[in-house]
Structure formats: structure tokens, C-alpha cells
Amino acid sequence: MLKVENLCYEYESGFKLKNINFEVKGGESIGIIGENGSGKTTLVKNLIGLLRLKSGRILLNGEDASKMSVAEIARTIGFVFQNPDNQIFASSVKEEVSFGPQNLKMDKIEEIVNDVLKKTDLFKYKESHPFKLSGGEKQRLALASILVMNPKILVLDEPTSGLDLRNARKLIEIVKNLQEEGRTLILISHDMELVSDLCERIILMKSGEIIADGGIKDIFDDSNLLEKTRLDLPEIAKLSKILEFGVVFDPGELYRKWRVSND
């Protein structure tokens, strides 16, 4: 589906992405994690063509993406930016979501817009002014406005940051439904619990390089690796590690394990 070979990129400020290699198969869910400034966003901007790699190759369904425009890539890889306020401009939710399909000159726009609004639980706001939506609803609107272009790969950047429990849960539920549809997910997040909830594979980045790529259990159990990337696990995961249950994020699961070993 997506293959990155020896990707290199350099900013004028000197920050570099060095020799990035990975492959994403259809239907996979991958978390990209690493400290601030480790190159996660730079990597994704290269993938969607906002930044153009200095050397290496990006293959989208076998085709060289470096020759495609950002709009063409958007048909396959949809990137939902972190801050919905940076993109909301239209006078109704319906119009906002139609923007992408209009740019891509898609067919049956009305139909696909309605469909996406239903999926993101925004249909009741179809005619509302997007600026009047709550933070959680705006976040879903941003997702809808990318999803409507029907990308096979969906990239989310900190989708739940700033959301309260209710809104975060709603968003996660929508994302899970999309995964079940077979969509490929790439998630950039600092929230380890969210990553472990949604992804089965992790790409770990540090100073512009991929330092680990593997199954989520393998990576979270590797203390050396976590130390090296200075990743901080939530308290519950620290506790479950000390109690020798491995890395567990879910309190219910930890409780079950604890009971089994104590009874």
C-alpha cells in the first residue's frame, strides 16, 4: 500500500530525517511515537507531499508519489491536522465537508457528504455554522472533511488532545469503526494508552530516525528502548511492569491479572 525507501529530508535549520524505511500494508494500524522534535510530523508532511523529500522514494500502491501533487496524494492518504480551527472556514457544516470533494472534482458530492456526516455523528448539524460547534464536534468535523475524500490511509495527529472524556471516547469509537471498514490508520500521539488502544504496531522515532519498528508489546516491554527515547509510560503501566504483569494500560485488565496471581 505505502512503501518508504531511504527517505531523507533536511530543513534549512539543519534538522534531518535520515534513511527512513518502512512499509504499510492495507488495513494495518500503526502508531508513530517519539518526543517532540523527533521528526514525526516532518515524516508525515513528506508522505502527503507538503514537504518534498531530498532523496529516497515513496511508493503509493507501487507508484512513485514524488511525481504526484498534494491533491492527488490526498485521494489516498488523508491527514487530519491537530488543530481544527486552522481549517474551518465555511458557513455551514455541509459546505465545509464538501470543500475537499469539490477540489478533487468528485462525483455525487451531496451523497458522500451525507454519508460521512452520519459516520461522524454530525448529520444533525448539517446546516449549522461550524464556528458554533463545540471543541469535540469541531475535531470530528476536521476528521469528516478528510474522510469525505475517501482516503485508504488515514493519518491522525493527536486526535484526542484537549478533548474531555466524553468527546475523546466518541472520536475513538468513530476511528474504530473506520478500522473495521478496513481503512489503514497511522496515528501520531503522545498518549500511550490511546496508541495501545488503536494500534498493533509501533514506529518509534528519535532525532529524525526510526529506532524501532515492531509489535506494540515488544516495544513497550523493552525498557532499554523506552529509556533511550525518553518515553514516559502512564503510572498504571509503570505499576503493572513492577508487578511483573508486563505493560498494561487498562485498569480492568490489570485488576484481572492481579486477582489471578493473588487468589
Binding site: L50, Q87, L104
Partner: peptide, 11 residues
């Protein structure tokens, strides 16, 4: 903002 809109197909 320009980046976000380009990702929505704005040319």
C-alpha cells in the same frame, strides 16, 4: 492553515 487546506485538495 495553507498546509491544512492543501491536504484537503486546495491547489
Amino acid at each position: 492553515i495553507m498546509d491544512a487546506q492543501k491536504a484537503r485538495g486546495l491547489e
